[in-house]
Design a binder for these strands. Structure first.
Lengths: 121, 121
DNA sequence: TTGACATAATACCTTTTGGTACTGTAATTT
DNA sequence: AAATTACAGTACCAAAAGGTATTATGTCAA
């Protein structure tokens, strides 16, 4: 079982919570990169990028492979899959609710009335 | 298009980055609740819960409806859907990679070997 | 060795989180 | 109507975590 209890998701959600790190994921989705190459796409120092990469690695969102004296960062599917699995629990939910909402809107349009609820004191 | 550019995702990812807030989402997936009811499931004060609910609302993960002197919190599908959409970009990715892994495993099973896949990546 | 790249430790600042206390508002009671 | 009770929201404060830059140290190749 590679999937995680929702407790194990914390490092992954934490990693995804930063926009720079999400950008890095998009970068790595197109091409594996060394830390130096990743740096070229951002205005921050290498040290900052390195910390982001470490956090991404802790979230199982990337893996790093040593290649000579360079360390190549790859996108790792497992972290993303774990989050996807966690969210799939809610799929039933928003599928159902959005469907109902849309039905209600369409019914309102047909009926033509959306007046606010009256309030007496 | 109601969905957001990935910039708008920040409040949602931020909201999901806290384990208490994820717990609240699971709670609300089973039943709409007032803030007081949510509090009963946690050890923190109502003020703290209220802040979590505000952040969840900013992430379009819940909606709040006033009902007399109570405010009922509901699960909101839209934020979850936005994250789901963002992640679907990577689907091709880990579907491809995990798919390859799974094929390898199945091939091993058919061949009569259940031994772990070679370290691969 | 030097030069180039990677990692580690530290410091500074911002954001986040949770607490207490106070305020606001709606329903209830007298 | 006025006072009381119940539920919710806001303001301020302290503690903790997060992000970045700087500086120093380590590693590898020429």
């Amino acid at each position: 079982m590679d999937t995680a209890n929702h407790n194990d998701l914390q490092p992954t959600f934490r990693a995804l919570a930063d926009p720079t790190r999400r950008e890095i994921l998009l970068l790595l989705s197109q091409q594996d990169m060394s830390i130096g190459e990743v740096c070229e796409h951002f205005e921050v120092t290498r040290a900052a990028v390195k910390k982001h990469l470490t956090i991404l690695e802790e979230g199982s969102l990337i893996t790093v492979r040593t290649h000579g004296r360079e360390r190549i960062n790859h996108l790792a599917p497992s972290g993303l899959k774990q989050v996807s699995d966690w969210m799939s629990y809610f799929d039933q939910f928003w599928t159902e609710r959005l469907g109902r909402l849309q039905q209600a809107i369409e019914r309102n349009n047909v009926a033509g009335k959306s007046k606010k609820n009256t309030k007496g004191s």
